[in-house]
Structures are given as structure tokens and as C-alpha cells.
Design a protein around this nucleic acid. Structure first.
Length: 604
RNA sequence: GGCCCAAUAGCUCAAUUGGAUAGAGCAACAGCCUUCUAAGCUGUAGGUUUCUGGUUCGAUCCCAGAUUGGGUCACCA
């Protein structure tokens, strides 16, 4: 496939170069590229591209208006597609000719995937880690943001010509899963997903909660007997059972390992279902139980080489005070690993497994410090890529009551949320009654598509770096700036295209030059910005930029659709032009949404 | 307390990275279905961009300080 990004901002670059030329010719001065600001003209003014002339006043020694006049005259003379200009204060608005926009449409319509860049042998390999769940409880809303961002960024990086490996590190061992195991052994009576009909991750999560309840009760009892809180937490019998189980696990006790494997498998089956529902997947899955020993060996090597220090109680620490950070523990006094140890091992294994050019960790901003330290430790251990690890740090999802807390039961469960949204989508759709003639399966597929479109768009349209609010009562919306609004527009376009096909009208691949009306040219102008949007989304790691672009496009299209007929247009050239325009916009909506992992329905 | 991050309309979010009169959706109010799907379109109203200073032709954006909120500083992950 031919690269489509080569024409990105070509117009602005052309104008900029000509402006530099103009300043040289008119005022005999060299200007820095950075001083030449060319931007898209704001809606309320006439024109397509705007040059800010304020920076040149010191060269011209003239008023802003006169300077703009001189530069504008020069540009119209030297750039064929610039047909006119006007001046408002210090802003020079340039009008680009009709023919240029028609050419842009033809380009977009005939690109295999407009705005996308194909990868080749020279493409860089980007590994993207996301999801990374613990195996003691089901996924919740916070994981949803992580998964959607991770998947979307992967698609965006691919669209920018990178090779992408999506990876997941499953935190399958540790005290957390031991807690669920202890509770299940004590209270489970052999309950399994099969015997109870419960989803495996939910089942294991229930025992995690039961553990915590029992633990709290024990602590309260011990405090009532006169213990301090800290002492009670230390002496609680059930927590010591969990600790004992972790020791047995590390010692490879067969019974413990069997139970661990069994319960983890229940969870994996549950996760797979949730991942499938969300439409996310992975190319390579790592398990902490396989990587932590590698991390431990690395830490011990660090001790030998004097990079880390071992205390008398045999715990191992990294002293990062010279780097402006704190001391960080790497191995506990009993020799077991911590989170950081495992991440060191995982990173080493990944770089051995793949020729990674860029490593991106999609992990919440609560772990900013962790990743700062991880990067530094790997660098100290002598890995040249240590400093290159990129932590894609996204904001938390908050509920109206505040932050979600697993233990306090204020989490929004991922499966429940999706199921609830599908119910709402079904209800809305049945009320509208537009899917008559579809089978049950076809209808259910559309409800799923719309519900997930709503959820994904709601989450991805927000700047990933920012904390976002999710109100379960109000956030499930299908009108306005939402996924279904955009999906609906796509469905309407397909409806028109079906009508055209029924009428035996062939949509041309190229359209001749016609005179564009305001709506048409506005649409092509927005459309032609898609390659930039894809590129900027990649540079900024921001699906929100894609979401915002598609929304702008769709909003403009809906006005066009409302005001201007396509099929009833008497002039054949214009009718075919509008059909091609609609088709191309539909395609761009679909491609744009694919970057967000959102599907589009043919009808809804 | 140290460090990091945020603050924009009643609510949820934008703002082309320093540009023109700060924009959308929701909620409210008023309209538009005999015409390509009304999950749509049009209009009204809603703002001292938390506050105080600074930098310059120009600041929601940069700098300093303050206020408020969040995160993090575990032999948890």
C-alpha cells in the first residue's frame, strides 16, 4: 500500500515555505520557520488557511494590514491553488481553490485506507502492554479504561506504520490470590463455576471479598480483646494462613500449586469472556509466575555488582537518593519478590523475545513513581533501553461517590456494566422499531455493537491523561456527542448507498470538478484533515484526538444530510459527487472508529 | 509533610500546543417528521477559563505565588 501520510499538512508546509520566500524578497530578511504560523481558518471567517502576520512586523516596519496585503499578494501570485485572500487585523486569510478540494476528495476516496500508513520491513516494532490484571477478582471500570486505551493505542500505532505487539502481564501469583484460595478452602464447599453457574473470575472474586470480611472480623475481635490494630492485623489467623499458603506456593507444594492452577484457570476463562465482549486481544501473554524469578536473579546480580545493597536481614534495596528518589525494596527479607522485581524480569524477557524499538506500558497514573523507578533500575542494571521505557500514564475513573475501591464494594463491574448497556440499547432500539425484518441474532449483534460503541466512545473521547468522571445513572447516553450518534450517521449513509444501488446508480471512483456549496466544501475540508488526526493521535498517544475528529466530521455531515438531498438531486454529476462524498465519509467514520476499537452497524 | 498531577457553562468534556468573538453534548426552554433513518436538525439561555501578580503585539495555554481537589511516598500489586 502506498503511504498516505506523505501529503500530511502539505498545504501548510507549502504556504510556510512561500512565506519565508516572500519575507526574503519583500523585506530582505530571513525568518525562522517557527515564526511562520499557518493554521486552519476559523469558521467565522472567510478562507481556508490563515497566516498570523504579527511576527513579521519587525521585519516589514509597516502596519499589520499593509504587511498582510503584501504577503497575500505574493502568495496569490506564486501558489496556483490560492485564489484570493482577505485581511482581518493581523490575520491573513487565504482562500484555496475549489479544484484543490475536489482533488482531495478523489484522493481520499481512492486510497486503500485513507490516512493510514502501512508497515514495511523498516517499520519500528512497538510493544504495548495493557490490561495486566490480578487474578483474584473480576475486571472493573478502571480496567475497562485501561483495556480500551491499550487496544486503541495499538491500532493507532499500527495506522501510523508501526509493527505492534500487544502484550499482557498477568499478576497470577502473590498474596492476593492466596487470600482467595484460603477463603475458598475454608468456605467454598467445593464450589466451582460449573456447579454454581458463576463466571470464574466472579466466583474467585467472591472468595476474595469473603476473605476480607473474615479478616476484618478477626481483627475487630482481637482489638476487642485488647490488642493494638497493628498487632491484630499481624496476629489474625486467616492472614497467617494466607502467608503460609504463599510460602508453600513458593516452595512448590503440589497441593497448593494444584489449587492455585485450578482457581487461576477459572479466572482466565472469565477474563477471556470479558476480553471477547470488549473486543480486545493480545499477541503475547506473560505470567508473573514465570518472570519473577528472572527478576530476582537480576536483582541478585545487581547486589554482586554493587548496584544494590543487601541488609543484615538479607532484604535487598536500591538507593536512589542520588537520583532524587527514595530507597526502594527489591527483595524481602525472606527472599521473596515484590512488584518491582517482577517488572524487571518481565522487561528483560520481553526484550529477549522481541526486537523492541519502543516499549509502552499502559498503566494508571497512580503508578507514575513505580515506572520512574523501574526505568532507572533497568538503566543501572546496564540495559541501554531502560531509559526508553514509556509509561503511558492515564487518569483514574471516578464515580460520583469518589474513587472506586474494591474492598469497599464501590467498583463498577465490567461485565455488569456492559450487560446493562446492552439492555438499554435493546430497549431504545425496540422503541424506535427500525430493525423490523432482522433476525433475533442480527438484532442482538446490533445492540451489542451500539452498547459497546457508547461505552468505548464515552471513555475514549476524554483526554487519556485526565481523571474522568463516570456516573452510571447518567453516562449511558445514546444522543448527542456519543458513539451511537456516530454509528447512526454511518448507518444512514449506508442506507443512502443501498438506495443508490437499488436504483442502479453506480458510484464513480473519481468525480469531475463541480462548484461546491458551503456544506460540501466544509465537509471535504474536515475530511482532508483525517491523516493529520491519525498522525497526531499517534504522536500524542491520544485516541481522544481521533474521537474528536470523527465527531466534528459527523456533526458536519448531519447538517449536510439534513439540508441537502443526495438521491433527489436532479443533476447527475452533482448526485454522483454527493454519493461519493457520502461513501468516503462513511468509510472514514468506519476507519476512524476502528482506531477506537468501535464497530459500525449497517442499520440501527 | 516531600514529590507529582489537575482546576474551563448547573453537569460531562473540547479548544488546531501562545492567536481572532473560549466551543460541543447533557439538563432547561422554543421549533422541525407526507420528502435519502428524528439515536437527527435549528434556535434561545448559560463564562471574571479558581484567585493574585508577571512575561508580550496577544495568555485558558508559559512563569511565580496562593486556594481547592486527586495521586504517591508499603518487606501490597
Amino acid at each position: 500500500m502506498r503511504s498516505q501520510n506523505d501529503n500530511t499538512k502539505v498545504m501548510e508546509i507549502l504556504i510556510r515555505n512561500k512565506v519565508i520566500e516572500a519575507i526574503k524578497e519583500l523585506y530582505g530578511q530571513d525568518v525562522d520557520e517557527k515564526q511562520v504560523q499557518v493554521q486552519t481558518t476559523r469558521k467565522e471567517f472567510t478562507g481556508d488557511k490563515t497566516l498570523v502576520v504579527f511576527p513579521f512586523l519587525s521585519f516589514s516596519k509597516k502596519t499589520a494590514e499593509l504587511t498582510a496585503e503584501e504577503i497575500g499578494t505574493y502568495l496569490v501570485k506564486t501558489i496556483p491553488v490560492i485564489s484570493a485572500f482577505n485581511i482581518v487585523k493581523g490575520f491573513l486569510n487565504l482562500v484555496i481553490d475549489n479544484s484543490y478540494w475536489i482533488a482531495q476528495l478523489n484522493l481520499a476516496a481512492n486510497a486503500e485506507k485513507y490516512g493510514f500508513k502501512a508497515s514495511d520491513e523498516k517499520s519500528e516494532l512497538v510493544m504495548i502492554e495493557y490490561s495486566s490484571p490480578n487474578t483474584n477478582k473480576p475486571l472493573h471500570l478502571g480496567h475497562i479504561r485501561n483495556n480500551l486505551l491499550g487496544f486503541s493505542i495499538s491500532e493507532i500505532m499500527k495506522a501510523n506504520g508501526n509493527k505492534v505487539v500487544k502484550t499482557n502481564i498477568v499478576n497470577d501469583r502473590g498474596i492476593h490470590i492466596c487470600k482467595s484460595m484460603v477463603a475458598w478452602k475454608k468456605m467454598g464447599n467445593g464450589e466451582t463455576p460449573e456447579s454454581s453457574g458463576k463466571k470464574g473470575d466472579h466466583l474467585v472474586g467472591e472468595y476474595y471479598v469473603k476473605f476480607d470480611q473474615l479478616f476484618k472480623a478477626e481483627v475487630a475481635g482481637l482489638i476487642a480483646d485488647g490488642m493494638s490494630e497493628d498487632e491484630a492485623k499481624e496476629k489474625s489467623p486467616i492472614i497467617n494462613e494466607a502467608r503460609e499458603m504463599l510460602r508453600k506456593w513458593e516452595a512448590n507444594d503440589p497441593a497448593t500449586r494444584d489449587l492455585w492452577q485450578r482457581m487461576n484457570n477459572w479466572v482466565y476463562k472469565g477474563f477471556d469472556e470479558t476480553y471477547k465482549t470488549l473486543g480486545v486481544d493480545f499477541d503475547k501473554i506473560y505470567y508473573e509466575s514465570n518472570t519473577y524469578t528472572v527478576g530476582r536473579d537480576e536483582v541478585l546480580r545487581g547486589v554482586k555488582e554493587g548496584i544494590f545493597e543487601q541488609m543484615d536481614d538479607s532484604s535487598v534495596w536500591a538507593n536512589l537518593e542520588k537520583d532524587g528518589l527514595d530507597r526502594k525494596i527489591l527483595l524481602r527479607s525472606d527472599g521473596t519478590s515484590v512488584y518491582m522485581t517482577q517488572d524487571i524480569g518481565t522487561a528483560k524477557i520481553r526484550y529477549a523475545d522481541f526486537p523492541i524499538d519502543h516499549m509502552i506500558y499502559v498503566v494508571g497514573n497512580e503508578q507514575n513513581y513505580h515506572f520512574q523507578v523501574l526505568s532507572l533500575l533497568l538503566d543501572k542494571l546496564g540495559y541501554k533501553w531502560g531509559k526508553d521505557l514509556y509509561h503511558f500514564s492515564y487518569g483514574m475513573v471516578e464515580l460520583p461517590q469518589g474513587r472506586m475501591k474494591s474492598r469497599e464494594g464501590t467498583v463498577v463491574d465490567a461485565d455488569d456494566l456492559v450487560a446493562g448497556m446492552i439492555d438499554v440499547a435493546r430497549k431504545v432500539s425496540e422503541e424506535l422499531g427500525k430493525l423490523d425484518g432482522y433476525t433475533y441474532e442480527e438484532k442482538e449483534k446490533i445492540y451489542h455493537t451500539v452498547a459497546l460503541g457508547a461505552l468505548k466512545y464515552f471513555i475514549l473521547k476524554v483526554d487519556p491523561k485526565k481523571t474522568m468522571m463516570f456516573n452510571p445513572e447518567e453516562s449511558i447516553d445514546f444522543n448527542g456527542n456519543t458513539g451511537p450518534f456516530i454509528q447512526y450517521t454511518y448507518a444512514r449513509i449506508q442506507s443512502v448507498l443501498r438506495k443508490a444501488a437499488d436504483a442502479g446508480i453506480a458510484i464513480p471512483t473519481h468525480v469531475p470538478e463541480i462548484v461546491l456549496n458551503d456544506k460540501e466544501s466544509a465537509l471535504i475540508k474536515i475530511l482532508s484533515g483525517f491523516p493529520d488526526a491519525v498522525k497526531e493521535a499517534g504522536e500524542n498517544h491520544s485516541p481522544a484526538l481521533v474521537a474528536n475528529f470523527v465527531y466534528e466530521l459527523v456533526k458536519e455531515f448531519n447538517q449536510f444530510y439534513h439540508d441537502i438531498t443526495i438521491m433527489n438531486e436532479p443533476n447527475e454529476d452533482i448526485r454522483k459527487f454527493r454519493l461519493l462524498l457520502a461513501k468516503t465519509i462513511g468509510q472514514t467514520i468506519k476507519n476512524g472508529f476502528s482506531l477506537l476499537g468501535i464497530e459500525v452497524p449497517e442499520r440501527m
